[in-house]
Design a protein around this nucleic acid. Sequence first.
RNA 1: CGGGCCGUAGCGCAGACUGGUAGCGCGUCUGAAUGGGGUUCAGAAGGUCGCGGGUUCAAAUCCCGCCGGCCCGACCA
Length: 568
Amino acid sequence: MRWTKTLIPTLKEAPAEAEIISHQLLLRAGLVRKLAGGLYTFLPMGLRVLRKIEAIVRQEMDGAGACEVLMPALQPPEIWRQSGRYEQAAQVLFKVRDSSQREWLLGPTHEEVITSLAASEINSYRQMPVTFYQIQTKFRDEIRPRFGLMRAREFLMKDAYSFDISDEAAQASYQKMYDAYVRIFGRCGLKAFPVEADTGVMGGKFSHEFMVPAQTGECEVAYTEDGQYAANLEKAASRGPLTPAPALAEQPLEQFPTPGVRTIEDLAAAPYHTPGHLQIKTLVYLAEGKPVLLLLRGDDSLNEAKAAAALGTGVFRPATAEEIASLMGAHPGSLGAVGFDKARVLADEQLRGASGMTTGANVDGFHFRHVCVSRDIPAAVWKDLRTVREGEESLHGPPLKIRRAIEVGHVFKLGTKYSEAMSATFLGVDAQRRPLVMGCYGMGITRTLQAIIESSHDQNGIIWPIAVAPYAVCLTPLSASAESEVMQVSERLYAQLGAAGVEVIMDDRDERPGVKFKDSELVGFPLRIAVGEKSLNQGMVEFCPRGGTKELVPVDAIIGRTLEFLRA
RNA sequence: CGGGCCGUAGCGCAGACUGGUAGCGCGUCUGAAUGGGGUUCAGAAGGUCGCGGGUUCAAAUCCCGCCGGCCCGACCA
């Protein structure tokens, strides 16, 4: 490819809309352009990278025994009603109507479609195990598209779905995909690591997310340095807070006035001097419309993913101030569960056995002290509700650390959630009809592209791993005039590199060397071969690996040197 | 959906408070010089100042409404 024949609109300055470095570089290097919030056009360089990632994914999926299909992006709402996700996922579903006002959905994912396919086509245990995958544009009505391709409304995703006759067999399919993911991210030059994850709206038994460490990531991961444990913060568990819950001698419950106290901090300050870990925090939520109290230690914070699991539903929200007042008879700041029986009470495990605690008296301006949780709040059901904190002991001992990361893949062991809902069954060896046992395996292709940039760049631009670079080599003649020796040698090298199977782009623009150097580094080609008069006079051209050191190589040795570099 | 900020040339921004002929840098085009790290000089093109209404002799500027964008939060398969 010749630079003048393609479109690489590089930018000196980063557009104001780009907050994080990878988003800025996507735009500055001319990989994509925004059409509207969360909608991007892929320009030639960006598209080539996307295709490279896709090719790696296809190779590894095929290698893992999966077979490719392509499913419609437009889907009938009926199958989403069948699976129960029409309401569950309503917030992210794009809905459209055809000319006769019939409703359709733009698929955010394809469990329903593949399950309905499996329901009709897979009938016997002889047809399994089988795994299908597809690479498709998916749509999500994101509340807030953000960070370029990281959180877009339309994005490219690889999804795979496995079907098995039993849990054990499904586990094997899951493991194959898990292994394939490790290889895919490795080939993309990403240090992605698996973490235990919450299954969320997908449902299912358990799941792993593949995370790329990045300060700008939207996820938080708790892990131990020995590599034995890593989990999404939504899921992470520990042995509990560093300051243990008190187990003081029981004393009679005592109400005392606390005028003006609204927060945990207020009560921790003078004149009360009751630190957060000696307080009980009372949160009022509405789960599927019904009130429920969630109790935590004063210094702990609620983990909503765990709350969803404890409540058995994802449909819940904090109660409003008015709802709280009418239910409790008191306002936030003075709430408590002592003697309360008008709603379910879920208490965090850390409160089990706690005594000598302080909590709101459910009367504005008053609190209770000497609360013994088991004695005074007997209705409480114990659940894990808290978010772990850095430094706490992990379940196997070493302290937890927390870091931010980008989620690039998510694999789920689904079980029979979808197959049961959609009557996808098969006949086993014993002639018994059973639901298919499923797994699903998502990978954000466009997000992976951006994650590579986020984790591989310097102050001059992107540094593409060879495996996904738009072109492996940027051939850079430092003169554009066709008669010059520089250009003639460049043309010859261009032809020879092409013949040797090297993906090469020649910067044939009539630009000054500085401009060409800056652009090739911004776009991030792994290798630049500069042909200039100075070195050519000594029979040399310049071999400049991106981010490495320049060396002079004789003209007739450069093809060999290049092939050697690309193989390494 | 709540809170905050912003919409002026392709991009980045000034002008607004204090109303009075639309500006700067980058980019683009022309010419010249230059020719190994975003070079220099001269010239040019390019703007319904987001949209609608109001106040005023006069609105990019003040007021009201709408639309769009960004940030924080809620949400996130």
